[in-house]
Design a protein around this nucleic acid. Sequence first.
DNA 1: TCAAAATTTAGACAGTTGTAAAACCACAAA
DNA 2: TTTGTGGTTTTACAACTGTCTAAATTTTGA
Lengths: 190, 190
Amino acid sequence: MKYAPGQKMNRNAARTLAAFSETMFILLGEKEFDKITVNEICQRCDYPRATFYNYFDDKYDLADYCWYQLSKDIHLDIVQASPSNEALLSVFDEAFQLFSTQRDLLNRIVVHNPIDSPLITHFLNHFTRAMTSILADCLTQRQGHTPLSLVAQYYANTVLLVLKWVFLGQHDTTLKEARTYLEELLTKPF
Amino acid sequence: MKYAPGQKMNRNAARTLAAFSETMFILLGEKEFDKITVNEICQRCDYPRATFYNYFDDKYDLADYCWYQLSKDIHLDIVQASPSNEALLSVFDEAFQLFSTQRDLLNRIVVHNPIDSPLITHFLNHFTRAMTSILADCLTQRQGHTPLSLVAQYYANTVLLVLKWVFLGQHDTTLKEARTYLEELLTKPF
DNA sequence: TCAAAATTTAGACAGTTGTAAAACCACAAA
DNA sequence: TTTGTGGTTTTACAACTGTCTAAATTTTGA
């Protein structure tokens, strides 16, 4: 990604980025990510290949931008204020909400890209990273020996695991049920 | 992987597979996975490219075989007998043990392949999958609403998270400390 | 409005990928 | 020995990748 996300950019660049990411979303609903070529993306949205490489390093980079686009509308700043344990649940709810609104898109993608495929892994990693950094801010003061970043990653992992189950595993689960799963995983003694 | 792992194979095929995986291990200690080409692998171990594709689909496939090789010596069958909660800890110990014996190799790999790189992700996925299926067998009867496979994935994730922290995050952590982290994560109310 | 600066585009390039057909080889059965 | 079979290797191929240069175009700001 040659442009930092969120950076000021002129109308043209914004349009170009949008065209590429929209095309990628369409193609992801049609075929496996591995089978999508940069050539194909460029043909579809009628931009020269050189322009693609002007904005992105490779197609993974474009995918990253797609995930960023997907989640940029979500407002996770409210979370910051709440205490640790509530923060976790509101982050979960926010993310659940986001994934819900994108359910059709996710379904289409998952048809061609199995849950263990590089693409889905890449997708989940993106959100896990984002959520880890959000949670790391919430969990500033904690007792115990476990390093903070480990705890943050643990919570992010677990939240994303449930979301993955619900939205990528093709399970029709309500928010309430999903919350139950999450709380059970986090609190149940092993 | 055209040969099922563990399948009977003649001496020649075994030697070829070994040559490829050894070469991969060497190269991983020298440079980033993305920068390693099939050509390079073949030059190094002096096999024609067609032979590579005779055995593997692509370099990720070879990497998979490498992880398999790495872990094939470990005996996780003992675990099956123990009750759920102990099973988890003995799986952790076994894996910790395995990673310890390969610490040098892992260090070398991590120098060139950052912890978020596709290679390391691939590596961790491999072990997470393996551990999930082992744990799914241990956790046959459980109370609660959470689906079994979700629980198994949760435990596998958490175990691998700690192992990743210790062995790929360049932290000098003893088994005892690592166990403390794991138990704290699994038992601490959130 | 105009010229300089920046960005986009066309075209070409070397290197890589994965596949396919045919030649090749080792080994065993006839 | 001959023949057949299965696997290996050679060679060739079409397509893709990422980079580069130079020309075209757009944007900027004086």
